[in-house]
């Protein structure tokens, strides 16, 4: 027996946004008494340790620069299942559907969830929950490679090549050489192998870490742009979430995109949802 419930009401855009912003501002402060005390706890701003938590989706789109002809050509070929150009997932060619790597810096804008840093004297390793990937950020003074993807040069990589340094209390990471099969974000904005990304991580206090991301990709965009003006990570205080339990607080839960599971989803859900026959 099927019962149609009351149809959904229209979105209350302004009021909901504003009210949610006001209420969400109080949520972190009211979360726990321990949380409030921890923010006042002294911390070395050069200490990036901890499991950092961010919203799942914090996408670009606010500051995207105009594209070059090459950039526009790539953009038109990308068929996203997210954003203003979204189409049914079954018809999308977003590489993540088949569990291709999100790549960098897309993994800073989508499926962020949890990440952590491990700092050593010569490098900092950044670990990500989604797909259990890592990046090595060399702090030993080496320069980024050149001629990436060119004859005789190193291969492009899904997560590029990165070097890092401290600029006061900001950990600055420069990256280049990202494989251009990845998208810049869920909207299908493109990037080239020549893209240079600058991240700045600043520990605001014991419980908060701020990230900005600047993109400079003359092959795809006419000028640099601030893709992420200020994402604030919060120190995670629980050991994973129900259903994806970490062994203990301080550990990243495992979250994998499994090709066989993705294929099962496509056959059982995505195809019939688009009106196509179950495989």
């Amino acid at each position: 027996m099927r019962h149609h419930l009351i149809p959904m009401s229209a979105l209350f855009v302004s009021a909901l946004f504003i009210s949610s912003i006001l209420l969400s501002q109080t949520a972190p402060q009211a979360a726990t008494a321990q949380g409030k005390a921890a923010s006042a706890e002294a911390v070395d701003p050069h200490d990036l340790s901890g499991v950092w938590e961010a919203p799942v989706r914090v996408t670009t789109g606010n500051e995207i620069s105009p594209m070059t002809p090459w950039g526009k050509e790539q953009f038109e070929q990308h068929k996203p299942f997210n954003g203003p150009r979204m189409i049914p997932l079954e018809e999308s060619n977003d590489p993540m559907i088949k569990c291709d790597p999100l790549g960098f810096p897309r993994n800073l804008f989508y499926e962020i969830r949890h990440m952590k840093f491990v700092q050593t004297p010569s490098e900092t390793v950044q670990l990500f929950q989604y797909q259990a990937v890592w990046r090595e950020i060399w702090t030993d003074g080496r320069k980024l490679p050149t001629n990436i993807g060119q004859p005789g040069g190193p291969d492009p990589r899904w997560y590029g090549y990165s070097v890092g340094r401290w600029d006061g209390n900001a950990f600055v990471i420069n990256t280049t050489g990202v494989d251009d099969r990845s998208w810049l974000d869920v909207y299908g904005n493109p990037h080239s192998v020549e893209m240079r990304v600058e991240e700045r991580y600043t520990r605001l206090d014991h419980d908060h870490l701020k990230l900005t991301v600047m993109i400079d990709d003359p092959k795809a965009y006419t000028k640099p742009f601030l893709a992420q003006p200020g994402l604030v990570f919060r120190l995670a205080t629980k050991g994973g979430v129900a259903g994806m339990v970490a062994w203990s607080t301080g550990e990243l839960p495992e979250q994998m995109c499994v090709p066989s599971e993705a294929a099962n989803y496509e056959g059982l859900v995505a195809a019939p949802a688009a009106g196509k026959t179950n495989k």
Partner: peptide, 22 residues
């Protein structure tokens, strides 16, 4: 910064992936 994040990301919540087919 939190306000900026929510302002910047609010639209993405309502354009959730996959829902276009439903």
């Amino acid at each position: 910064a939190v306000v900026i994040v929510f302002l910047a990301t609010s639209a993405s919540v309502f354009a959730h992936h996959g829902n276009v087919a439903y």
